[in-house]
């Protein structure tokens, strides 16, 4: 009974708190720019509105066009549920769950790209190509980061891996993972969620043809993915598992907010880099993770 309640609580956190993050980012950006900006809850309004709207489907699209966002959404949610939520713990923990998490995100990527290519639009093809290509480099960084955590803790399950802090390599890992967060969630400097030029986008251009409930699933999934990466980043760096419940909750909430605000500031203060420089940026993130890995390796051997 208790476990069901706990599961529902975790589900509620992921489902209902995730759309807050884009709102916070937008508020920060508005504040830096000296505007009032949209309300923090704007995404909730958008989702509610989209859920009741009709759907326009391209004449070329197969049923996969609607199934794609649904599968991607479930994949992201499942990946999120595998991730421990600080003091709330995790729903399911087993050896190797971290690999399942990474590949669930890959499943979401496959389905998003698939749905984008359904329409036969050159722009969406472009976006899908960029998404799957940059993911190659991001994947290398993520695997390295996970290896670092695994070597540090001597474990392959998320709850044990994320309990202690990374130690001396924490800063390197934090910066590396933050860059991966920006790339995977299509934020500046990799991508601009606010642009209205299809040619310059990655993620936003893939969902150009979506509308109504499928678009709601896409937007909500993206918000959950942002929360997922923030939670992962905070827990990878801070020794959440070693704190008391109150301190851990505070650290979690504070950490996630800090990450979100940092995303907002990055977005306000930097420009999107040219596409040919994106691989360079991602390689830098990968190298940072490699250095963190080397530190963890030396630390473990000593």
């Amino acid at each position: 009974m208790i476990s069901i309640l706990e599961f529902l609580a975790r589900l509620a956190v992921w489902l209902f708190l995730a759309p807050l993050l884009p709102g916070v980012i937008n508020k920060v950006k508005a504040w830096v720019a000296g505007r009032r900006g949209p309300p923090v809850l704007q995404l909730y309004y958008d989702l509610a509105r989209l859920w009741h709207k009709g759907v326009v489907v391209s004449t070329f699209a197969s049923p996969g066009f609607i199934a794609g966002p649904a599968v991607a959404w479930v994949a992201v949610l499942a990946a999120a549920l595998l991730l421990p939520l600080g003091p709330l713990g995790t729903s399911l923990s087993f050896r190797g769950d971290v690999i399942l998490l990474i590949y669930l995100l890959a499943l979401a990527r496959f389905c998003t790209a698939w749905a984008a290519l359904e329409t036969g639009s050159a722009f969406e093809g472009m976006g899908a190509a960029r998404e799957v290509s940059y993911a190659v480099l991001a994947e290398a960084a993520v695997i390295t980061a996970v290896l670092t955590l695994s070597m540090q803790s001597g474990s392959v399950s998320l709850s044990a891996m994320l309990t202690p802090s990374v130690g001396p390599g924490a800063v390197l890992l934090a910066v590396g993972l933050f860059a991966v967060l920006l790339a995977e969630n299509c934020r500046v400097p990799f991508d601009d969620p606010n642009t209205h030029l299809e040619l310059t986008m990655i993620h936003e251009v893939m969902v150009l043809d979506h509308s109504g409930p499928p678009l709601a699933a896409v937007l909500h999934g993206a918000a959950m993915k942002l929360l997922l990466f923030s939670v992962l980043l905070v827990q990878a760096v801070l020794p959440i598992g070693e704190l008391s419940v109150a301190a851990a909750s505070g650290a979690m909430i504070g950490g996630v907010l800090l990450v979100t605000v940092a995303v907002g500031f990055t977005e306000s203060l930097t420009a999107r880099v040219a596409f040919r420089r994106v691989p360079l940026l991602l390689t830098t993130a990968f190298l940072l993770c490699v250095f963190a890995l080397l530190i963890a390796w030396k630390g473990g051997a000593a």
Partner: peptide
């Protein structure tokens, strides 16, 4: 859950109304 979600989204879209149109290019 993947199957259920895909079917649910399909039903939701159908009740809201699905219109076929040219791809936005």
């Amino acid at each position: 859950s993947l199957t259920v979600a895909a079917i649910a989204l399909w039903f939701r879209s159908r009740t809201n109304g699905v219109r076929r149109a040219l791809t936005w290019d």
